[in-house]
Design a protein around this nucleic acid. Structure first.
Length: 491
RNA sequence: CGGGGCGUAGCGCAGCCCGGUUAGCGCACCUGGUUUGGGACCAGGGGGUCGCAGGUUCGAAUCCUGCCGCCCCGACCA
């Protein structure tokens, strides 16, 4: 393991890339824009999945699986939807390879051309709605509350590990309802689940809001989102929940008979979060020493590093360490005792700091003698010598404190980098200076939004749901505005 | 798709401008020994189609032509 990380203040983007590799989260694959998620990175994702999955189940959803391939014709059924995804779809045209006659290797067999080309799903609305058509006849079949954990492919020009990759992992929920009101409630409910997950598990504060017309999901009536702020002052969309209205029901002819026997189109929602959350998690808390993970998502919550010269010393440390391990495991804390004699303690300290392990226990001969251990926390790097008997309680308290502390720190940072402005001059000044979220009045037109984007590279991240009504004038056009919206430069 | 950069050992790089011993350094790896409270040290050792294909030359990692791949920065997007 190479040492050292570029400083955030010097080259944020390099810092991020190096961190992803050095913390053993992911690496680039042979295929451009794709990534290999390494076991350590993947186990963080699994913890995210587990927490989210439980929240989905607790609100009545079930998992299912729909195919990777989408018949090309499906994609053309909803006009906005095609428009949105056509440019980035991978297409399967053949189904067989053969050996080249000149022995140069394997080639696509030209005789094995598919009748209808298949699209690798960029998202599954079309497959799912074509299926829902068969599942739904009456109001008794509703609601349908389905989620799937899957991979999707969007052929992006420019990719970054976790933040934007050609193939990524996500969950996509697709629900069908009898009424508009119920579908809207579902959309908001799932947004709230995402926000709760981000704040309670990732320790990452988010703004809940609605996307503008130009930023919303192709095919949706409304797109709700959670927006987070990264340490470089750029915003990151961390999750979306869409109210689809009857758009897909109409495109795929999904109707149900209501209690009066009248045929109506079904109301839909879809919602998703992806491995992009990994990027958000990394950028929300980590420092120049490496990853900082919230205890609730850390694959290893506590690491025990022995400091020893002799085999006898190691054995007496092992006894203490095993005791801790046992007790902590009983409390549901994941513990690793790193008794390798191939690396020095100092090396291990640096290694686990890079990997963001929240709590480290060091035990050496001195501790054995005194009946103590040294406990270090990753977030502040503070160390404390604690008596052996108090250690378990100390650690469980400490983990809660770390979870709280990194959230509070991220919250303070966001508060610091959220600025109210009242003029376009001020707006540009803040963007070019400290960055972050800029709250400003906007006249509600796509033209103004587009102009501002062209001139400043800032986009409207969302219209915050808790925005209070207040009369003002648009910072760009001077036209009247009813509420402020949140601008930022974004990932 | 535009601009820039890179491709030499598992990783990170030097060598290339100005062609010429056996292609070198750090990390990692292997062996032995000493070490271990913040990325240990000494000695020895193994590992290379120099991205690919042509060309120039007595001789190419180095010069020329073409190609491929990846990364970074922009435009576009989750």
């Amino acid at each position: 393991m190479a040492k050292g990380l570029p400083k955030r203040s010097e080259d944020y983007s390099k810092w991020y890339n190096e961190l992803v590799k050095k913390a053993d989260l992911a690496e680039h694959s042979a295929v451009k824009g794709c990534m290999i998620i390494k076991p350590y990175g993947y186990s963080i994702w699994e913890k995210m999945q587990a927490a989210l999955d439980k929240m989905f189940k607790d609100t009545g959803h079930s998992n299912a699986y729909f195919p990777l391939f989408v018949p090309k014709s499906y994609l053309s059924k909803e006009a906005d939807h095609v428009e949105g995804f056509a440019k980035e779809c991978a297409v399967v045209t053949h189904y067989r390879l053969k050996n080249a006659e000149d022995g140069s290797g394997v080639i696509v067999d030209p005789d094995a051309k598919l009748e209808e080309e298949l699209i690798v799903r960029p998202t599954s609305e079309t497959v799912i709605w074509s299926t829902y058509k068969n599942w739904i006849q009456s109001y008794r079949d509703l609601p349908i509350l389905v989620n799937q954990w899957a991979n999707v492919v969007r052929w992006e020009m420019r990719t970054r590990l976790f933040l934007r990759t050609a193939e990524f992992l996500w969950q996509e929920g697709h629900t069908a309802h009898a009424t508009r009101r119920e579908a809207e409630a579902e959309t908001v409910q799932m947004l709230n689940i995402y926000a709760t997950f981000a704040e309670e598990f990732m320790a990452m504060p988010v703004v809940k809001g609605v996307k503008t017309e130009s930023e919303k999901f192709p095919g949706a009536i409304d797109t709700y989102c959670i927006e987070a702020l990264m340490q470089d002052g750029k915003a990151l969309q961390a999750g979306t929940s869409h109210f689809l209205g009857q758009n897909f029901a109409k495109a795929f002819d999904v109707k149900f008979a209501d209690k009066e026997g009248k045929l109506e189109h079904v109301w839909g929602t879809s919602w998703g979060v992806s491995t992009r959350l990994m990027g958000a998690l990394i950028m929300a808390h980590s420092d120049d020493e490496g990853l900082v993970l919230p205890p609730k998502l850390a694959p290893i919550q506590v690491v025990i590093v022995p400091i020893f010269k002799t085999e006898e010393q190691l054995e007496s440390i092992r006894e203490v360490a095993d005791g801790f391990k046992h007790e902590l495991l009983k409390l549901g804390v994941s513990v690793k005792f790193d008794d390798r004699d191939t690396n020095s303690p100092g090396w291990k300290f640096a290694e686990y700091e890079m990997k963001g392990v929240p709590v480290r226990i060091a035990i050496g001969p001195r501790d054995i003698e005194n009946g103590t251990v040294e406990i270090a926390r990753r977030d502040t790097k503070e160390k404390k010598v604690v008596s052996k008997d108090e250690a378990v309680q100390y650690i469980t308290d400490l983990m809660e404190d770390i979870q709280r502390n990194i959230y509070a720190k991220a919250m303070d940072f966001r508060a610091e980098l959220t600025t109210d402005v009242s003029s376009y001059e001020e707006f540009k000044e803040v963007l070019d200076g400290k960055g972050g979220f800029v709250s400003a009045h906007w006249d509600g037109t796509a033209e103004t939004e587009e102009k501002i984007k062209e001139e400043t590279k800032a986009t409207i991240r969302c219209i915050p749901m808790d925005a209070e009504e207040e009369d003002g004038v648009c910072i760009y056009s001077g036209k009247p505005s009813k509420r402020k919206v949140l601008f930022a430069r974004a990932y």
